[in-house]
Computed example of a mutant assay.
Amino acid sequence: MMKSRRVFAIGALCALSLVFSAGGGLLHAADVQEITIGYAVSLTGRFAVEGKETSRGYNMWVDQINGAGGLRVGNKQRKVKLTVYDDESNPSVCTKLYEKLITRDKVDLILSPWGSGINFAASAVADKYKYPIIMSSASATSIWERGFTYIFETTQLSPTMMAPWKELLQAHKDKIKKVAILFENFLFTVALNESLVQYVKEVGAELVLDEKYPLGSKDFTGLLLKAKGLNPDAVFVLNIMPASVYATRQANEVGITPKLYAVNIGPMFEEEFIGGLKDLSEKVCESGFWHPELPFEGAKKFAKEFEEKYKKKPSTDAAYAYISTQILTQAIEKAGSIEREAVNKALHSGNFKTILGPYKYDEKGINKEQRGFLCQVQNGQRKIVWPKDLANGEVQFKR
Rank of each mutant, 00 (worst) to 15 (best):
122 A>V: 00
114 W>P: 12
152 F>K: 07
136 S>V: 03
115 G>P: 06
148 F>S: 00
144 W>V: 06
150 Y>I: 03
137 S>T: 05
138 A>T: 06
138 A>L: 05
145 E>S: 05
133 I>P: 08
150 Y>D: 10
112 S>Q: 11
126 A>G: 10
140 A>D: 15
132 P>M: 07
154 T>N: 11
125 V>F: 02
113 P>D: 11
145 E>A: 13
136 S>E: 11
150 Y>V: 03
151 I>P: 02
147 G>K: 00
154 T>F: 05
123 S>E: 14
129 Y>V: 03
117 G>S: 15
119 N>Y: 08
135 M>C: 04
114 W>N: 11
140 A>W: 02
136 S>C: 14
139 S>T: 12
133 I>Y: 13
124 A>N: 10
122 A>R: 00
131 Y>C: 11
125 V>N: 02
149 T>H: 09
146 R>L: 14
148 F>V: 07
149 T>Y: 05
113 P>A: 13
148 F>Y: 15
121 A>H: 08
154 T>H: 03
130 K>V: 01
148 F>Q: 11
111 L>F: 14
118 I>G: 08
121 A>N: 09
116 S>L: 03
125 V>T: 14
121 A>P: 13
128 K>S: 04
150 Y>S: 07
152 F>S: 02
132 P>C: 07
111 L>K: 00
133 I>Q: 15
126 A>C: 12
124 A>G: 09
122 A>L: 05
141 T>E: 06
151 I>T: 04
142 S>F: 01
142 S>V: 05
114 W>D: 12
131 Y>L: 13
111 L>I: 02
147 G>F: 15
132 P>H: 00
142 S>H: 00
121 A>M: 09
145 E>W: 07
128 K>I: 10
150 Y>T: 01
113 P>F: 14
149 T>K: 12
131 Y>Q: 13
127 D>A: 15
124 A>K: 08
136 S>F: 02
127 D>Q: 12
143 I>Y: 04
131 Y>K: 12
129 Y>E: 05
112 S>C: 12
140 A>R: 00
112 S>L: 08
153 E>H: 05
134 I>Q: 01
138 A>K: 00
137 S>P: 09
140 A>G: 15
147 G>I: 13
143 I>E: 01
138 A>F: 05
122 A>T: 09
139 S>E: 04
131 Y>W: 13
119 N>Q: 09
124 A>E: 10
126 A>N: 06
117 G>M: 12
141 T>V: 08
112 S>M: 12
147 G>T: 01
147 G>W: 07
152 F>C: 08
125 V>L: 11
139 S>R: 00
147 G>R: 11
128 K>Y: 01
143 I>C: 02
132 P>V: 03
143 I>W: 02
117 G>V: 04
143 I>G: 00
140 A>S: 15
129 Y>G: 04
135 M>E: 01
154 T>K: 01
116 S>M: 07
143 I>K: 07
